[in-house]
């Protein structure tokens, strides 16, 4: 029989408490139980980066964490990053530079980029590319994504 567990976490500033099967991963919980479908599910084995979200302030793979492991944690999804000034600046820069086409990778890409910008990342293109190397994009060829992140970093430093 499937084991369940009651978990409580803060999602984008709101407290969520619910009973979940222990085998449910965090990104499925956020999408299917909390209704926040901004985080995407791609490969489900930690390679594509589409499910990247912030847990207790650091970017993690939502598909490699069980929902029960995020009990008592603070989770920020793309829906919450829109309220963060860095997240907002990155969203605007992505739009300005056409840093997305289909948009599937964008929520994870932004979560990685927010961590990079807030962590004082360098505007140097190679460093940006290294940081987002864990996020696949099959549309843009990354050029415009690097442009957008560099834009935010250069504007922040000027």
């Amino acid at each position: 029989m499937t084991q369940t567990c009651t978990i409580t976490m803060t999602v984008n500033g709101e407290i969520v408490s619910q009973q979940v099967p222990t085998r449910m991963n965090l990104v499925d919980f956020l999408r299917n139980e909390v209704g926040l479908t901004g985080s995407h599910v791609g490969c489900e084995h930690g390679v594509c980066g589409a499910c990247t979200i912030e847990v207790d302030g650091v970017a993690v793979r939502g598909c490699l964490l069980l929902a029960v492991q995020a009990d008592q944690a603070s989770v920020t999804t793309i829906e919450g990053l829109a309220n963060n000034p860095t997240g907002r600046a990155l969203q605007n820069a992505f739009q300005k530079h056409n840093a997305l086409q289909c948009g599937f990778c964008t929520p994870g890409m932004l979560a990685s980029a927010v961590e990079y910008v807030e962590g004082g990342g360098s505007p140097e293109r190679t460093a940006i590319r290294e940081h987002i190397s864990g996020n696949y994009c099959r549309c843009t060829g990354y050029q415009s994504i690097v442009d957008a992140i560099a834009d935010v970093l250069e504007n922040a430093s000027s």
Binding site: V60, L65, S112
Partner: peptide
Amino acid sequence: LPHIAHSAIRNR
């Protein structure tokens, strides 16, 4: 360390 997987993986 910077060569070990990606930042989000190294966070866990």
